[in-house]
Structure formats: C-alpha cells, structure tokens
Amino acid sequence: MNFSGLIQDFGPLTITGLAQGAIIALFALGYTLVYGVLRLINFAHSEVFLLGSYACLIVWGFFGLDQNSATPSTLSVIGLLLLGLVAAIVISGITALGVELVAYRPLRKRNAPPLAFLITAIGASLFISETVGVMTQRNIKGVPPLIQPRDVFVIGNMHVTNLQILIIVLALMSMFLLDRFINRSRLGRGIRAVAQNPDSAALMGVNKGRVISLVFLLGGLMAGIAAVMYDLKIGVTRFDAGFLLGIEAFTAAVLGGIGNLRGALLGGLLLGLLQNYAASLFGTEWLHAASFVLLVLILLVRPTGLLGESLGRARA
C-alpha cells in the first residue's frame, strides 16, 4: 500500500475523483428516480446512457468531426457542445421512455411479479447493447477533441482543468434543477406523492402512468448529459460503455440511499473519490476491487445507504 503516494497526490486525486463522481452521480439519478416510484431497478438504464454517448458523436460526425479532427474554434465548440447535449438528452430520454413502454408497462398491466421485471430489464439492456455491438462491429468509437484539457488554476500539485470544471459545474447545475423540479413544481409533487403512497396519490387525482413516464424521462435526460461528459472525458465509447459505469452508478445510488436524489449525488461523488484514492493506494489494477470492498464496508455500517430515505421521504 502506497500511503505516501496517496498523501502526496491527494489534491489531484480529489479533483479527478470529483469529475468522475459527477458523471456517476448524474447517471445514478435514473436508477434512483425509477426505484423511488416503482421499486424497480431499471437495468436497461445503462443503455439509456450508452445511446446518449453515441448520439452526440453522430451529431458531431454531421459536422465532419472525428477523433482525428483539430479542435474547432471556441465559438464552434460551444455550439457543438450544446448540439451534442441536446442530441444525447433527446435520444436518452426517448430510449428511457421506450424501455418503459416496451419492457415494463405491459408487465405492469398484467400485474407481473417483480422477478419478471428484472428479466425484461436485463433483456432490454442486453438487446440494446448487443444491437449497438453488431452495428459498430464491436469497435471503439473515438470522440472529437472538442475540449483540450488545459489548466485553469493550480493549487500545489492539483491542476484543475477546464474540462473538469465543465463536468462538475454542469452536473451540479443539472442536479440542482432536477431537485428544484421534484421539490417545488406541481408535477414534482405528484412524483413524490406516488413514491410515498401510490394509492393516496391516485386518490388525489395523480395519473400514475404519467408519473412513471416522467421519472423515466427525467432519468434519461440526466443520463444523456452524463453521456456527453463521459465522451469528452474518456475520449472513446463502445457498445459496452454503459455496463461497468452502470454498475458503478447503480452502486452509487444504493450507497447514497436508493430513491434519494441527494443520496445519488453524494454516492456518486464518494464513489468517484474512493476509486481514485484506492487506485493510488493499491495500484490502478485494484481500482474496482478496492473501491467495491470499501462500499461493502460502508453498507455494513449503514445498510440503507448514507442518506437512507426514499425519494418522497427525502425532504427538500
């Protein structure tokens, strides 16, 4: 174990971990939102993310950009980023709604047991990722270098780049808006009502079907944003890009307390940090193993997750 390395690189590891954690947190919101309302783990959420990560690349491709292009001018980068975000958000949102419509809604109508949902969830996930795999010959797809990482400020040996700032700010902003929507708007109140007491919600005139569509859509939008950030950060995507990150995001949601929006944020950031600290401490090859051992330890102490409450019960 390399303690001196961890201490020496604490600053850089922290900022890298936060950027990584911000992406995981955005991704995790989709699991937590759907679980809060349906008590269902939407395993196909990883493919909602996956299609978003391709959607922006396809749009950038329309402008003739690939991984070998030069970085465009600042103004074009802003425009391209916005277009990429819109494309990813739209495609991820549609995918999430589509999965709910095709894989879950028919089962709900027939009062299927929870295991049936688990099977269709895994089925939908595999179907989408394998289809992408076939269509791309399982090759990686490179991301055009829209943003060349460049130091914005340096504290000691911690170099904070423009890309890291973009990722963290965008993630926090999205989560802030989502939080406001869930807690302040009429529709958000409807979502919380269904999460807290579905029968009572129906007695208030809440259309449960519409609330369910809405949480899938919201989760999809967040995954779309996460997907663009992921592309820019990692530089490539692939048909199975959603898989491992999906497990991490799901873990983050459970770690924070599944069903709890702020829990997803906390869980995501914490997981990002843990991974980077663990990589430094035990070596990069142990990154996942070590961080998951730590997660299990945390869950042993707090089995319901750090913030522990369900979507509705989490006040404010």
Binding site: A193, S200, M204, V206, E309, G312, A314
Partner: peptide, 21 residues
C-alpha cells in the same frame, strides 16, 4: 382513506396542496 394515507415526507401544507392536485 382507511389508515389516513397521508404523505409522510410532505409538510401539512404540501399534503393539502396535493388534495388540490
């Protein structure tokens, strides 16, 4: 409803607002 069925995580005000959903 039987058992009251109030929304446990919402304030009194929010519960009443839900009634006017």
């Amino acid at each position: 409803p039987e058992g009251r069925g109030i929304f446990p995580g919402m304030s009194v005000r929010e519960n009443l607002e839900m009634g006017a959903y």
